[in-house]
Simulated scan of single mutants.
Amino acid sequence: MPCRAPLLSLVLLSLLFFLLVGSVRASGTESFLRLPAPKNVTVYSYNFHSLLRWSPVEVNRGLVLYTVHFKTGFLNEWDEMNCTRITQTECNISWSLRKRRWTVFLRVRAELGQATSDWVETDPFVAERNTTIGPPKVNSVTESSDSLLIRVTPPFGSEAGYFPEYYVSYWENATSTIKREIKLSNTLFKIENLKELTLYCFSIQVVLKVYPDLQLLGLPSVPECYRTTVSEATKAGYLSLILISVLLFVTLATVGLFHLWRHRKAIKYWFQPPLEIPSHFEEYLKDPSVPALEELDNHPEDDPHDSLSVISHGDGSQASGSSLDGQARSHSISSDSEVT
């Protein structure tokens, strides 16, 4: 009996050792088969086009694949989608949302060989409640004198039971703060009662009525500006005004030229400088007894002339006569110059 006690203790210790080694190996194998879970798992939905996105799982060995499952609020069973063992970090889930009113749950996990991660589930998603409606596309705008005719395309495809409407805001110019709003249900509509030759800007939003007490308001479109045209009546008024102005100008020009020709003598007299009689002639004409002309002739000192003397060695009388003749001719020459 004393010998059996140590042997029994040895067996118990060996068994405990093997149990410890097995648990360590099991935990090591389990940790090797477990991957980090994907993070930032989010549903992005724009115009009912929905994607499930997540951040990539980074490991040092091999290529990580991903698998996505979904279930609805009617059936509490997870089912596979077209996103099984994919390399992308997003999954298009639009095809599975056959009804936009379905409540959908999604989950995703990472896979690498036999190793997997934990499932990461999303919050409940309802497309017609959680999607973002974009602005409609403006196809054409036709301007007239008092309206803008606009044709748009909805941002999403038609589906039975949905009747999108269009919420239009417009204002008179790019700086005006006064906006007017209308609500329309057709893709071709007209903004009426506008001023001619005026710049108008508009922005359009889609309004989707989901329930009687719930509607989705889409994002507004980028403002677009167009100028209204001139009306036919205004064009006719402008042409009439121009024609009247031309006729008035021609009439006034004709009348002016006629008056110039008719009063040409008076105009010539007005523009010709008056003739004035010299003052000494005027005094003489008023009183002929005034010796005005004689006084002009009786100023020999004012008449510059030269005396010419002829000296000859001949007869003195001839020399004297020549001198007198010269003086007489000089005097007559000076007199002629005064008269002239």
Score class of each variant (00 low, 15 high):
D303T: 12
V290Y: 05
S45M: 02
S203M: 02
S332K: 08
F189E: 13
G73I: 03
D306M: 08
F48E: 03
P56W: 13
H280T: 13
I178D: 08
I93H: 00
P223H: 10
P36C: 07
P36V: 06
R262T: 15
R25A: 12
M81R: 05
S94Q: 01
Q215E: 11
D302T: 14
A292I: 13
H299V: 06
S289H: 05
S320Q: 13
V68F: 00
I242C: 12
I86L: 04
G326L: 14
S289I: 03
R264Y: 06
L241E: 12
S279P: 07
L257F: 14
L16I: 03
L97M: 09
E224D: 06
T340K: 01
N130H: 14
A236C: 10
Y200A: 01
M1L: 01
F281N: 12
A253F: 12
D315R: 06
S279M: 10
Q272T: 14
E111C: 04
G62Q: 11
G314T: 10
S279T: 13
P136I: 00
V104N: 05
V152S: 14
E111R: 08
W54D: 01
S334K: 05
V120L: 04
S23Y: 10
L51C: 07
V64G: 08
F105A: 01
L51A: 13
P212K: 00
P288V: 01
K190G: 09
E276V: 08
R53Q: 07
C201W: 07
R25C: 11
L148S: 04
E196C: 05
K265Y: 12
P223V: 09
V152N: 13
S334N: 07
E224C: 04
S332R: 08
P135D: 07
T234R: 15
L247P: 10
N186A: 02
L217D: 07
E30N: 02
D118W: 05
F74L: 09
P135V: 10
S140K: 11
E276R: 08
T103V: 00
E294P: 01
L63W: 12
I277A: 09
N60V: 05
S240K: 15
S203T: 08
S335N: 03
H263N: 13
V255M: 05
L15A: 12
P220F: 11
R151H: 15
A26K: 15
L216T: 01
N186R: 08
L285V: 08
R107K: 13
I277E: 12
S289R: 03
E121M: 11
C91T: 10
L97A: 04
Q88H: 06
F271T: 09
V207Y: 03
H280P: 11
Q272Y: 02
L219W: 09
S335P: 00
L33Q: 02
L52K: 03
V24R: 10
M81E: 03
F32E: 03
L112E: 11
G113A: 06
V11M: 01
N173G: 12
I86N: 02
S332F: 04
A236T: 09
Q318L: 09
F163N: 14
W78M: 00
R101E: 08
D302H: 11
S221L: 11
A253K: 07
L15P: 08
Y269G: 01
R53G: 06
V210E: 05
G161D: 01
C201K: 04
V168T: 13
A319I: 10
V24H: 06
E172P: 02
F105L: 06
L63F: 14
H299M: 06
L324R: 15
K137V: 09
S169D: 07
